[in-house]
Design a protein around this nucleic acid. Structure first.
Lengths: 203, 203
DNA sequence: AAAAAGATACCCATAAGTGGGTATATATAA
DNA sequence: TTATATATACCCACTTATGGGTATCTTTTT
């Protein structure tokens, strides 16, 4: 099997150089190109057809890394996009997944984990960073009434509809919803649903 | 293996008698009890511990079948609840699933399908009626912009947040959302998300 | 060239959701 | 017995969503 070709996109040259140093000694990787901005990146990726594009998700004008990802997806290129970020941003990760990114890694990821992730992705896997603390501190416990409300929320019922089904005031339903949001650390219904899925909620 | 014990709950005695006639000739089923209302049903189920409770979902006071289901679930009984209904009601089916029902069958289901479903459920399966017409008439096609909006909706972004990300007016985002709802036949965001899942939307 | 589809952006009105507060009653746990 | 948790229901203010309309512009199709 030939070497895994990487294309690096980052507006900080220091990051690119650092990655070069990391991958240099490795036999099974080769950095085939680099770019500091979207335009250069699109050209480079079109011409070099790398196996993987390692893209900084945050560049000068907002989350341009996502735009590059979208460009790759829209043009149906074979290059797998792996995003690099400084922070663990749940929404950005979700965005990346939705757009078909193959990975999301923190810039302070250890080099061994980085190598492992990229090899895994080339083999057809996906590799998304998930904060481990969250998984542990998550022990959301709902009250029986909250569970009844949740089961109706996820079906798409409004608060007034729920209040009728449960024979309580819609104001009370709102209180339950507020408490449920607070317990789950979410701010709207869609986030709540995503959180419930994440929690493996059996609905 | 012993016979499968059934408990039938329906406010129409004619239905109960009809089911008795259906199951009478079968060797592997036995109707161990029946009830015309919730109170009798709870008593009967507690005492007889049937394998399956066949429950009419609509009884005089609204969807009492669901209440009986909830009672069974809350009391952690081993009896599997299968709901019978006259109509294909997506929301009721969803409710039933959320509450842990093992099946949802139409009253005009053929007897062979009914037997098959119950045996399947006793073996640990679930059996929910799904209108087949819908699956075929569903060929929802989204425009590229609508897809971008959808990908952000399912992450929990508001219209104004989406408008910023896409660099368009929030009024335009609202139009896209309206068109998306109309295309999918949904009336709010949660219903939309459920529909997208149903459509196997890759997000 | 004319029609259709897509994207844009505004108008209106109403419904629903969100975030905060207080308050009461009941049951359960310390 | 005194807290604590749960459920109930209201208050307020603000934001967001929903359902309908019209309109313009561009691109694609007929």
């Amino acid at each position: 099997m030939s070497r895994i070709s990487l294309f690096i996109v980052d507006d900080h040259q220091i990051i690119i150089d650092g990655l070069k140093g990391l991958f240099g000694p490795l036999e099974d990787f080769i950095i085939c190109g680099e770019a500091n901005d979207i335009e250069s990146a699109t050209n480079g990726i079109l011409n070099l057809k790398p196996d993987i594009a390692l893209v900084d998700i945050r560049m000068p004008n907002g989350t341009e890394g996502l735009k590059l990802l979208q460009w790759v997806v829209k043009n149906k290129l074979d290059t797998k996009v792996v995003l690099l970020s400084m922070h663990h941003d749940v929404r950005l990760i979700q965005d990346a997944k939705n757009w078909g990114a193959k990975g999301y890694l923190l810039k302070n990821t250890g080099k061994d984990e980085l190598f492992h992730a990229l090899r895994f992705i080339v083999d057809g896997g996906v590799y998304f960073y998930e904060a481990k603390e969250e998984k542990q501190q998550q022990e959301v416990v709902f009250t029986p009434k909250e569970l009844e409300v949740i089961r109706l929320i996820v079906d798409g019922y409004s608060s007034s509809e729920i209040s009728q089904k449960l024979s309580i005031s819609d104001e009370t339903v709102k209180v339950h919803r507020r408490n449920i949001r607070n317990k789950t650390g979410t701010t709207n219904t869609v986030e709540l649903i995503n959180k419930l899925v994440e929690l493996g909620f059996p609905y």
